[in-house]
Design a binder for these strands. Sequence first.
DNA 1: GATGAATGAGCGTTCATTCAT
DNA 2: CATGAATGAACGCTCATTCAT
Lengths: 207, 207, 207, 207
Amino acid sequence: MLQKPPLSPRKKPVQARSQATVDAILEATARVLVDSGYDRASTNRIADRAGVSIGSLYQYFPSKESLVGALIDRHSDEMLAVFLRQVAAVKDAPIHEAVRAVVVATVDSHLVEPKLHRIFEEQVPRIGKLAESLEKLDTHASSAVRAYLLAHASELRVKDLETAIFVVVHAVEALVHRAVFVQRGPTRDALVEAIVDLVTRFLAEDQ
Amino acid sequence: MLQKPPLSPRKKPVQARSQATVDAILEATARVLVDSGYDRASTNRIADRAGVSIGSLYQYFPSKESLVGALIDRHSDEMLAVFLRQVAAVKDAPIHEAVRAVVVATVDSHLVEPKLHRIFEEQVPRIGKLAESLEKLDTHASSAVRAYLLAHASELRVKDLETAIFVVVHAVEALVHRAVFVQRGPTRDALVEAIVDLVTRFLAEDQ
Amino acid sequence: MLQKPPLSPRKKPVQARSQATVDAILEATARVLVDSGYDRASTNRIADRAGVSIGSLYQYFPSKESLVGALIDRHSDEMLAVFLRQVAAVKDAPIHEAVRAVVVATVDSHLVEPKLHRIFEEQVPRIGKLAESLEKLDTHASSAVRAYLLAHASELRVKDLETAIFVVVHAVEALVHRAVFVQRGPTRDALVEAIVDLVTRFLAEDQ
Amino acid sequence: MLQKPPLSPRKKPVQARSQATVDAILEATARVLVDSGYDRASTNRIADRAGVSIGSLYQYFPSKESLVGALIDRHSDEMLAVFLRQVAAVKDAPIHEAVRAVVVATVDSHLVEPKLHRIFEEQVPRIGKLAESLEKLDTHASSAVRAYLLAHASELRVKDLETAIFVVVHAVEALVHRAVFVQRGPTRDALVEAIVDLVTRFLAEDQ
DNA sequence: GATGAATGAGCGTTCATTCAT
DNA sequence: CATGAATGAACGCTCATTCAT
């Protein structure tokens, strides 16, 4: 379901043109969402910005929901790439270091297109297929965390692994979201330290 | 709930009639939001459901935003009442017990009108005045937590109190929200235990 | 149809109260019209400003049209009073002096409540009974001019008196309206001179 | 009136379809205004009458104001064409003849679509952008008069040219409007004679 | 395929007017 | 008589979607 790098080279020219159109539409969607917000992001406005007719837009995306869903998917993939790259580097590191990497990676992934991400989180209704798209990131992040924790099970103080994953992933995500987007409250650095502390103490005994 | 002491005797009967209408409108708003979601909750539909003309609705609420905002305020007050009542009971209790009370109180407050709460969290765009209303609960919950932590500062291992409050309040809220509403994931009881553990270890040394 | 000074003193007390209410409503109408314009001057807003219930407003005025019509009548009476007082003073004066008096009187009558007058002229649709009310001033001004011209017929160069009256009254009115309200164009004094010149040359031979 | 020289060949067929729709909408606007008056001329009614969806109306006119403004512009252009054609023919004629031509041209221009013109003058509120559109005719008529008077300055008795233009244009317009639309009063022919007399005596010495 | 004109249900909101109290 | 809560038709306008060209 993810569009990975060009694995199937057949019909490239046609696909290349199509892909360019699709990209233009998705780019326009992102820009209109950021500029106008979800409620005022009409498909006509998006087609205009993409330099594409509204008819063409509907050729590639059968509904507004599918269009926004595709953009969310694309954005999730980008965030996930940032997250996984950083987390992969510490897959053998001790817990404290790994936790810090997860928190920082979460922050960095939130900085990919922060305005767009904020609109996804705060304006797009979590309904129908959009809800699924918006959950995608969690699911994949959970997998990465699961892999690490399974490999380091002996160092953990928590017993119920699935619950721990759930707690860690969602606590980190919620706190980072607020750290990145909400003005009031502690500085971002102070928060990162606190989140690392919170999660580390939860997962492992003091060494 | 009306007419407590005769402080302002003028317009009392008038107000009673109005209040009934206002209540009917707010009730209808809640029901329509739950049944149809925020996007399909039109003011005309709400007025219909309230058994009231659209004109009456606009006599009491100058805009859809103000109507939803009023309902959010009302709902926040109810949740807050549940939360504060339970938290007040442990204001002198040791940290572990207090944290458990906070987590359980958060869960209970989420069960006041869970479907409505979910709409507020997941469908109402965090924009303009609605954003403020949606923040109300956090602000008040933070105050309660602040009061407790200030009184128990000597027992805490965290130094930066404001950061700790921020972390605790938002982590608990985000995790409870998911515990209550999202089907996949651990059982609610397991989660409550884990959240208590997470927060307790963060705030205080093992005794 | 004009309310002249208290000619029928019976039932004074009752009428006094009613009259006070009516006056308050008319005053409020004038103020709301000036502040908000005709389109946004709702009967509810007017009743509010008058410190009177909407029900009472409709007790005295059966429709918005009748309310605005009454205000136009009242305003026309005030303008007419100013106009007639000044014109009466020159009823035996030579034409040039009389014409000047008419023009100046027209200007002065436009300054009674200029903002209100402008709204009557530029925003109130000339439809139904309102059209009649708005014509009232013309009719009475024409009568005054007619009386003068009849008395000075021998000095006139124009033969068709009714046509002359029509031309004089409406030309003066249109030009004075623009002189008073429109920013672009000549200064008011220059215009007054020109209007006097226009009308004098039209009515009489140079002496 | 379309497609004169092939200057911009792109979108020509497209434009033709659009232009037909725009024309239908403007025509319907004129008819609805005449039939129902400005206040009852709703955009939905106009779209209905044009045999076009309300959405199409708003594709071409972003607001009711812009729609009525466009119609006023179109109508002003038509009136102006009639006026200028007749006035141009006498640009070298002596004053008396030129004045007569101006008055007759003003009458004729008022007969282009008299009912519509009356609506514009008497029902459309002179507010915002509509005020500008409604002034358009005056401005252009003034220019034509200015050109003539400048060319014939030596024959004039008035010294202040701008004031004279102002007086002539607005007096003629106001009187013609009444001559054409108001039932009571002198016959139209008598009025035309009187207006010509009024203006001629004002501008020039008897020859 | 691409185009963009066209659609129309539905939205939030206003306001002259009525009528039970 | 006065009140003001209640009414509801109607308004200007948006936008996801369709379909003839």
